[in-house]
């Protein structure tokens, strides 16, 4: 198995894992981690699929860097909203609490 095939395989597995985790957990922090796992899988696929013969392609690597910053921004915003939601409602999920 070439390293690239390994990237792709790992990317696919992380995507499946993250997807299941995202839908199965209700704790907001775990959901967010599942999203990040799925995101990492996607980034691995983006880089891995683009270099079948092992010569690195700078374009997908730059795309992944952009994608990481976007995912980071979304994660940070979700954390702030989540902490504040917890602060106001005392809940770690979105079921129940004020205003449902």
């Amino acid at each position: 198995m070439t390293p690239v095939q390994l990237y792709v395989l790992a990317g696919v597995l992380l995507c499946g894992l993250g997807f299941a985790g995202f839908l199965l957990t209700s704790h907001l922090l775990r959901k967010l981690m599942a999203f990040n796992i799925m995101g990492s899988g996607t980034f691995l696929l983006l880089v891995g699929l683009a270099q079948p013969n092992n010569t690195p392609d700078p374009v997908p690597q730059a795309l992944v860097l952009t994608g990481i910053v976007v995912a980071l921004a979304a994660t940070a915003l979700a954390l702030v909203l989540m902490r504040r939601w917890y602060h106001l409602s005392g809940r770690t999920d979105l079921q129940g609490g004020p205003g449902d």
Partner: peptide, 23 residues
């Protein structure tokens, strides 16, 4: 959810493998 996740993994893996094989 488990069925959906397994289907996603299998189909994604299969498609990715095919894409990897072609220039």
């Amino acid at each position: 959810v488990l069925i959906a996740a397994v289907v996603l993994t299998v189909v994604l893996g299969q498609t990715a493998w095919q894409i990897l094989a072609q220039p």
